[in-house]
Computed example of a mutant assay.
Amino acid sequence: MGVPQLLDKHLDKHFDTHGNWQGMSLGWVSIVWLSYILSKADHCLSHVQPWVEKRLETLSICTGLSMRALDYSDDRLQAVLRYLSKDTAWQKFEQELGGQL
């Protein structure tokens, strides 16, 4: 479905991220976080970083990206929620995602 790439594309257009955002992109942070939620049936922000830390090698191999557990800190995840809560931007992302299905 290309969700991380699509989120990143819309990030540049519609989601105004903080200028100091470094490390994993918004799209990939969202996908790994979603993987955590689905595997643990838990949406608590504070549990994601330790989960990622224990699976860094597996996640890096699966995504083909170099990862740091710090990319999944609770304040980084809170920022993801803030960016993705903008209705207009979300609707534009969702329209393009739906058009690819």
Rank of each mutant, 00 (worst) to 15 (best):
M67H: 09
L34I: 14
H10E: 09
L70M: 12
R82Y: 13
L7N: 07
N20D: 05
E53A: 03
R82V: 13
L26S: 08
E94Y: 05
E96T: 03
L81E: 12
Q78G: 14
W33G: 05
Q100M: 07
D75A: 01
L65N: 04
R55C: 04
S66Y: 06
D8E: 06
I61N: 12
A69R: 00
H43M: 11
D12K: 01
L7Q: 06
L45K: 01
A41M: 15
E53K: 03
Q100S: 08
S39I: 04
I31W: 13
G19D: 09
G64A: 02
L65V: 05
L34N: 14
H18N: 13
T58W: 01
S85V: 01
W51C: 04
Y83W: 11
D16Q: 15
A89C: 04
Q49A: 05
P4T: 03
E94W: 02
A79H: 04
D74I: 00
D16H: 12
G98M: 11
L11D: 09
L59E: 04
F15E: 07
P4H: 02
V48N: 00
L70Y: 11
E57F: 01
S39Q: 11
H14M: 06
G98T: 10
D12V: 06
R76P: 11
L101V: 12
L34A: 15
W90Y: 14
L65K: 03
D16S: 15
S66A: 04
I61S: 10
V80Y: 07
S66Q: 04
Q91V: 08
A41V: 15
A89Y: 04
K54P: 06
W28S: 03
Q78D: 12
W33E: 09
E57M: 01
A69S: 07
L34W: 12
Q100I: 06
K9P: 10
H14P: 05
D16V: 12
V32I: 13
H43E: 15
S66C: 05
H14A: 10
A79I: 00
M24D: 14
Q95A: 07
R68Y: 12
L101Y: 14
D71R: 02
S85G: 11
V80H: 03
S30M: 02
L84Q: 09
Y36H: 03
D87C: 08
L77P: 10
H10L: 11
V52K: 00
Y72T: 06
